[in-house]
């Protein structure tokens, strides 16, 4: 098990390194004359050269990358081009908010999906068709349309929740709840749809297993077999879909945060993109890659922990 963990962590780090090199290479290859862009057309050639030197863009590509990487491993991602601040100072506080929204969304999605998927698999009928219908909608309808709908109905027509803004939980728990509910719902919709159908499928598979019949033949009730044995065996496949959905949520959160004006990574990602702020976007790429790789690692470890065949080897 320990070798397995070490192997997976090493693999994740290698992957992160590959992503960083590829992203850095591609982003600086196309960067063009950034100094000229920043200083405007009237700037003198000396000023442009001076700016290029300041930005480190006059160095050979490989040196630039090594400089960046040396900083990056110390969490120093350089200075932003569109704001007078370091990339780390811009991204990390906002990352906390995004991670909070995405984690709550993941939890909500897991809980709702387990309940809906299990009910659908066990009882069939209307609830089953409902789950399949939600699955179709959640797969086809983009999350930001759900966000518009929720904002229009539950924040504007009915003033139940906040349409824009974010309040820290520590400042005012009630306002915090009003500000995160709609973003979390909008973001969780596709996750719930996908995960509940996955849970439904794996519970259905598990229900047909021979050991379910044998355990019932020993006198255990249907409910007990479902709650203890079926769900336990259905957890593995459900977990992997949660991992996939999580990646989608990180991307989706950019849109959702923009819609609900939540000061997470979303708005800063949009403005940095519009202003060609390469260091900030490079930082964003690295942060998301790190989160995704870490999440995959967690999912792998959890599935291994759930599966005695892997756990014991």
């Amino acid at each position: 098990m320990l070798t397995f963990i070490i192997k997976r962590i090493a693999n994740g780090l290698l992957m992160l390194f590959a992503v960083s090199f590829l992203a850095y290479f591609l982003m600086h290859l196309g960067a063009g004359n950034v100094a000229r862009l920043m200083l405007g057309l009237e700037a003198t050639a000396e000023a442009v050269a001076q700016k290029n030197h300041e930005l480190g863009l006059d160095l050979p590509f490989f040196d630039q990358y090594v400089n960046w990487l040396t900083g990056a491993v110390q969490l120093n991602l350089g200075n932003a081009w569109s704001m007078p601040d370091s990339v780390a100072a811009i991204l990390f506080p906002r990352l906390a908010i995004t991670l909070q929204i995405v984690s709550i969304t993941t939890l909500v999605a897991i809980v709702v999906a387990i309940i809906l998927g299990t009910l659908a698999a066990v009882y069939g009928g209307i609830i089953d068709r409902f789950v399949q219908f939600i699955g179709l909608l959640g797969f086809a309808v983009p999350g930001f349309l759900v966000a518009f709908f929720l904002a229009a109905v539950f924040a504007i027509q009915l003033p139940w929740f906040n349409a824009v803004g974010y309040t820290q939980f520590a400042d005012d728990p009630y306002q915090w709840f009003r500000s995160v509910t709609l973003p979390v719902l909008a973001l969780s919709f596709s996750g719930i749809a996908a995960a509940s159908n996955q849970v439904r499928g794996s519970v259905k598979d598990a229900l047909e297993m021979d050991y379910v019949r044998t355990l019932r033949a020993r006198g255990l009730s249907f409910q007990r077999v479902v709650y203890k044995h079926v769900l336990r065996n259905a957890a593995g496949p459900a977990l992997s879909i949660i991992g996939v959905q999580f990646v989608g949520m990180i991307g989706g959160s950019i849109l959702i945060e923009q819609i609900f004006a939540i000061p997470g990574l979303g708005p800063v990602a949009v403005s940095s993109t519009a202003m060609s702020d390469i260091p900030t976007i490079m930082g964003l790429v690295m942060i998301t890659a790190m989160i995704v790789i870490a999440m995959n690692l967690i999912v792998d470890l959890l599935s291994a922990a759930l599966n005695p065949k892997v756990r014991l080897s």
């Binding site: 992957m15 989706g252 950019i254 993109t273 390469i278 964003l284 790429v285 890659a289 995704v292």
Partner: peptide, 20 residues
């Protein structure tokens, strides 16, 4: 697996940053 490590939207934002 490298491509799968990033959400599509983030990669597209990066490309727009560079290319416009």
């Amino acid at each position: 697996s490298i491509v799968m490590a990033l959400p599509g939207l983030v990669v597209l934002l990066a490309s727009i940053t560079v290319i416009g």
